[in-house]
Nucleic acid binder design. Structure first.
Lengths: 211, 211
DNA sequence: ACAATATTTGACCGACCAGTCAACTACTAA
DNA sequence: TTAGTAGTTGACTGGTCGGTCAAATATTGT
């Protein structure tokens, strides 16, 4: 019943992601989003009770796509080191695409948003924290596999190390955003990540060399 | 000549640092800053041509203090590993103090500001980039000393590794801010940093064990 | 045909935004 | 004394902010 559903809701979410990712939450107005999405303001507030709610739903939408990718990259039948390699490639590739689409390096939308709104909007800060934990689970499982394969120190605190990996990637992406430059990500991220994890040089190459 | 100078200018800079560090650039208005500093708006614009100029001067002020601390921590007569240890202690301590003073973990003001305004204000983004390079110089010099002391791999790309260290610390501080939690910083930063640098376990302790 | 519902429209609101300005005050140098 | 200047004051502007609303418009089930 009721009027035919349109894709206005999706258009708003998509547009919000673009604008907020490129600029920032507070720099983008509801009017900006509506204008770019071609949707009237009244419709905006028909779908979302507030700007913050739109941001939350936008994050949900974005994280869902991410998780799908992560499930694939971190599937158990990929050798553990290869999972991290895939992830690094994915991150680099995604940054390249978004940079081409939006005109500058944008970094990690969750980190940028979380950092901006940490003290301003509890709901958003909490959601970002959730997303982070969600991702570190993949890292931790993989680190455990690396321990079991004898590739990294068996005394590794995998929970702590997973958080470190996440923070490291966030830091690299923030810096790439600030400097508007991807070259460092492209050249060094994988090697730096392996250093942090404690993968010895002999394992940098193919995992097939090992049992 | 003219009227007796007041400390209004300094009050504005100090207040701006507090408010913007705690919240964000766009979340804090000129009126907020004036009100908290007890300065009239007209006086604000007597000292600063715009809000962005105040932010720039605030960063200058803040970085100057930082550099003074870094000069001391990274002085050549401190053993290189000890320099990093001092820095970790300094960062942790500073975060604790600011957290107690402002009521929450605030992270790195440059990274937060840089990330927020990367696409919005070129001047500020550029200044942040400058500050970053300034700090990595200390890291690079220290890494070089570690190479020469035989403590880390002599093939280390010290320039790249210095950038990695910086990004890693930025990431940790951003995450501490988002999660409003310092415990990870306190417990693991030093060890994680040494892993990233590639300091072998045998050097984790006192440097006196080595030549 | 008609009632119920879902969606759209765009004018409208008060609050707040960054920034302006002319008058005013306190100080100094001549 | 007085001219010049550095600093202060607070009312003011035009524009933008997030958000509201009543009316219009489709679409459905009955």
């Amino acid at each position: 019943m009721g009027r035919k559903p349109t894709n206005n809701r999706e258009k708003l979410i998509e547009t919000a992601l673009e604008l907020i990712w490129l600029e920032s939450y507070n720099a983008v107005s509801v009017d900006d989003i509506c204008k770019k999405a071609g949707v009237q303001k009244g419709s905006f507030y028909h779908y979302f009770p507030s700007k913050a709610h739109l941001a939350l739903e936008t994050m949900d939408d974005c994280v869902q796509q991410h998780i799908a990718e992560y499930e694939e990259m971190f599937s158990a039948d990929t050798p553990p080191l290869e999972r991290f390699r895939k992830m690094v490639k994915f991150i680099t590739q995604q940054q390249k695409e978004v940079s081409a689409q939006l005109g500058r390096v944008c970094g990690c939308p969750f980190a940028t948003l979380g950092s901006e709104l940490a003290a301003q909007d509890e709901g958003i800060a909490h959601k970002v924290t959730d997303i982070c934990s969600q991702k570190t689970v993949y890292y931790q499982r993989t680190l455990q596999d690396l321990v079991e394969a004898g590739i990294i120190d068996k005394n590794t605190d995998t929970q702590a190390k997973a958080d470190e990996i996440f923070a490291f990637i966030v830091g690299q992406l923030i810096m790439a955003r600030i400097k508007n430059d991807l070259k460092y990500l492209e050249e060094n991220l994988e090697k730096a990540l392996f250093d942090l994890i404690g993968v010895s040089q002999q394992h940098y190459g193919s995992e097939k060399l090992r049992a």
